[in-house]
Amino acid sequence: MGMEAGSRPQGESSMHAHAANPYLAHHFDTPQQQFESGKLAMWIFLATEVLLFSGLFCAYAVYRANHPEIFVWGHKYLDVTLGGINTVILICSSLTMAWGVRAAQLGRKRLLVTCLSLTLLGGAGFLGIKYVEYKHKWHDGLLWAGQYNPRHGDTESGHSPAEALLAGTPATQPAGAMQSAGMTPRGEGQPAGHAAGTIEPALRPFTASPAAPTVRPEAAAGQAPPTAHSESLKAERSMLPMAAVGPPGLRVSEQTGTYQLAAEQAPRQLWIFFSIYFLMTGLHALHVIGGLGAISWILVRSAQGQFGPMYYTPVDLVGLYWHLVDVIWIFLFPLLYLIH
């Protein structure tokens, strides 16, 4: 950069440099210039990555501002322990990555291979734990809007602590706490046998008939009595701005009076939280997978001994990318798991 004339080194050094370094591309004059170009490009690329995520952060901000109660409720379903472990794993893998870059600069091949392998292991471990978390959510039906279908404790899984927490009732509370907390209203006021149950998987707004929402007959009816906990929540909610109201098709049971009770226990449209959760962590997981691919690539190259003090650009650039993936998670973790 800089305002001084030209950005390219002048002189005869170029010929020399090309002869000495097989990795120097023909259109660069010196390895230094090539390295700086690569680094600048990587930083610009990282800026585009931040902007890619910024759309999701923006969506998060908009929906959290409009529906704070959804986020307060929703985050209780996330496992802070697993999320915390994952955070530690990623931070450690960033450390081994940075160590690996140093090893490449020093030309210490064995250390480099070890560090990259550990980084790879960390990334894989992160994905493994993420898989466990996703599997739980999948099992509980706590998915994005179109697949949102919360099941409750008396099926295979038993009550999860989060469920009990959400319902404001002991974990032994019979089935139904979940729906009454969350989605039941759609079933209220239907003929017996159709009384409250889990909602139909997808609230596909343009295909399902809004006048007659289908419910699962096998699900037991359940309306948790108002508890002290829900009363306190009511008070809390009253201080929050009103949530946006969905179209009439989703308010079938409003006339029955039971709707109010359920709505006070858990906010409507809880699926918004899970939509955003899956979009943000899913896109991040894709980036972790991409990062693992890139690390594998430089791991193979470093095992072949291609890197050393003269040439370590790929290690440096992949390292930068990996740190970004880490940093994004460090924002995601508190925004999704640690809401108060």
């Binding site: 890619l52 910024s54 759309g55 179109g146 969905g246 449209q269 955003i276 979009l279």
Partner: peptide, 26 residues
């Protein structure tokens, strides 16, 4: 990149019904 995430969200909206842009889901 902002267009990129917007279009990805649109695809997710159509394929998975994530609900970010659909009024019926809030």
């Amino acid at each position: 990149p902002v267009l990129g995430i917007t279009l990805l969200l649109l695809i997710a909206e159509r394929a998975l019904h994530v609900g970010i842009f659909t009024p019926a889901y809030g």
